[in-house]
């Protein structure tokens, strides 16, 4: 239990997926204009990342390892993730229409979110078992949500600021990300 908690805090806060590993940067910069949409994107990422960690861990432990084909992990994972996102989308549309209404538009965007493949591969590289993998996936996605919602809050406030012309748009967002990243390095001593 203690180890699971360590993994969760480690991947949600200390090694934040966006601010210290640079994964999932595209949605972080692209979908962070408003808190509502940022939270929606975060919710969709939590949903997909938890399921995809479960499925890829299961496939790795019970298909690839017994058959000695670990080297195929990259190919298998990316195809499984691409198929899984579409499956989740279809399933959600049919069975959970309210959830689909809230998260549906973000789901296709997640397929190429490098965080999903990144977590699947780091689960393997760190030697996590299925349960640890799921916890790691969930916590990573929570970390992503924290970062993107904070960023959206800051960007909403920044609307009223007088930013130099050349820094308007992306540069000021990146500078904000830099400051957030410095703040998050402060967590480095926790574990």
């Amino acid at each position: 239990m203690k180890e699971l908690l360590m993994i969760a805090i480690g991947s949600a806060i200390v090694n934040n997926v966006v601010l210290s590993q640079f994964l999932g940067l595209c949605p972080f910069l692209g979908v962070s204009k408003k808190i509502d949409t940022a939270a929606g994107m975060g919710g969709a990422v939590i949903f997909v990342l938890t399921i995809s960690s479960l499925i890829t861990s299961l496939i790795y432990q019970f298909v690839l390892v017994p058959s000695g084909m670990e080297f195929l992990q990259t190919i298998v994972f990316i195809l499984v993730i691409a198929a899984l996102v579409q499956l989740v989308e279809m399933f959600m549309k049919k069975v959970l229409p309210p959830l689909y209404q809230a998260l549906g538009v973000y789901l296709p965007l997640i397929t190429t979110n490098c965080a999903v493949l990144g977590v699947a591969i780091s689960n393997v590289q760190d030697g996590y078992n299925v349960l640890e993998g799921v916890v790691n996936g969930f916590a990573t996605a929570v970390g992503f949500t924290i970062a993107i919602v904070l960023m959206a809050g800051l960007r909403e406030k920044m609307e009223y600021n007088n930013v130099p012309k050349a820094f308007q748009g992306m540069p000021i967002v990146l500078l904000t990300a830099m400051l957030m990243s410095i703040a998050f390095t402060g967590f480095a001593g926790i574990i």
Partner: peptide, 20 residues
């Protein structure tokens, strides 16, 4: 990590300036 964001921010700012 913060240095990466900083360098990229400056790069985009220069690009914006040239474009402007």
């Amino acid at each position: 990590a913060p240095g990466a964001f900083f360098v990229l921010a400056l790069l985009v700012a220069v690009q914006n300036y040239v474009k402007g």
